[in-house]
């Protein structure tokens, strides 16, 4: 043995780190990178031209509207979640330890409940025989049920509901790191309560706002169940359109194209929000 064993041990030791990460890397490569890569590649492999699939896709008014709608819904969801989330996060960050614990549990719970269940909740509320319609009829405010589902408002409510917890948790995370004495310092120097928010809380909370916005924006761009159940055929988004092309009309060429558009939009919004974060972020922090 001797020298031979030592070299062999050394070789194994040198390879050990890579052997450890190999199985997971292979799984991601073979089952995610290759399939998704082939989807991307196929979308550009029309014999009539590299962008032929895209030319065809964007030639349709309907498709253009779906792209715009998806973008708009993601944007509006992010904006509303940001505004509403700030109030809830402020409340949570400023509560005593017991209340804080309960409120965080209440925010996490919907996050761990399935998307189907959470969207179904809104169907129960907004449906034709739903709670809202029944209440309005009982109060005598309306005679016949309103159609509250399958419109953009319903999709928006469902989306905000879906992603609000992520925003709240991101904001609570950043609000809790702000030194309470900074508020006191600003007040003692003459800042009104709103001034403290504008000059201290807001700029210091920006990193959390960006993280939350990235999660919510990319998430709502990709979500399938909520627009499908609350928006139906009338409120197609990229995700529901992809599903329809792939499963119902078996138009895999179009599905490839939509999939690529979704990936590009996700990547672009990540880059854009990242750049925004860089520009807005408070400087000079280690």
């Amino acid at each position: 043995m001797g020298a031979d064993t030592i070299t062999r041990t050394n070789r194994v030791t040198a390879l050990a780190p890579w052997l450890l990460v190999l199985p997971a890397t292979m799984a991601v490569f073979a089952l995610l990178a290759v399939p998704v890569g082939s989807t991307l590649a196929e979308s550009f492999s029309n014999p009539l031209g590299v962008f032929e699939n895209y030319r065809r896709f964007f030639a349709s008014d309907y498709n253009r509207m779906v792209v715009l709608r998806s973008f708009w819904i993601a944007f509006a969801t992010t904006a509303i979640a940001l505004a509403a989330g700030f109030f809830a996060a402020y409340l949570i960050a400023g509560s005593g330890p017991r209340t804080k614990r309960i409120l965080i549990l209440l925010s996490v719970f919907p996050l761990l409940t399935g998307v189907v269940v959470r969207s179904f909740g809104w169907m129960v509320i907004l449906g034709r025989n739903g709670i809202l319609n029944n209440a309005l009829i009982e109060l005598g405010l309306i005679n016949a049920p309103l159609s509250l589902l399958f419109n953009q408002g319903a999709v928006l409510v469902g989306m905000v509901y879906l992603f609000l917890p992520l925003m709240i948790l991101s904001l609570v995370g950043v609000l809790e790191t702000i030194d309470q004495d900074l508020y006191s310092a600003a007040e003692s120097l003459g800042s009104s309560p709103f001034g403290v928010f504008r000059q201290v809380t807001f700029p210091l909370a920006l990193p959390g706002m960006v993280v939350g916005s990235i999660l919510v924006f990319t998430g709502s761009l990709a979500t399938f169940v909520t627009p499908r159940l609350l928006g139906g055929e009338r409120q197609m988004t990229l995700a529901t359109l992809l599903h329809e092309k792939a499963i119902i009309s078996f138009d895999w060429e179009a599905a490839n194209t939509i999939a690529t558009i979704m990936i590009v939009l996700t990547a672009l919004s990540l880059v854009a929000l990242g750049m925004l974060a860089k520009r807005l972020s408070p400087k000079g922090r280690a």
Binding site: P35, T39, F224, L242, A255
Partner: peptide, 30 residues
């Protein structure tokens, strides 16, 4: 020291690909 830090983000890739795109791609190929 051996494995560069960026390598860790390889395993986070599934979070960045829209699930519906992943599902569709997986079906089509594998």
């Amino acid at each position: 020291k051996t494995i560069p830090a960026w390598f860790g983000s390889v395993f986070l890739l599934p979070l960045f690909v829209p699930e519906i795109v992943f599902g569709f791609s997986l079906l089509k190929t594998v």
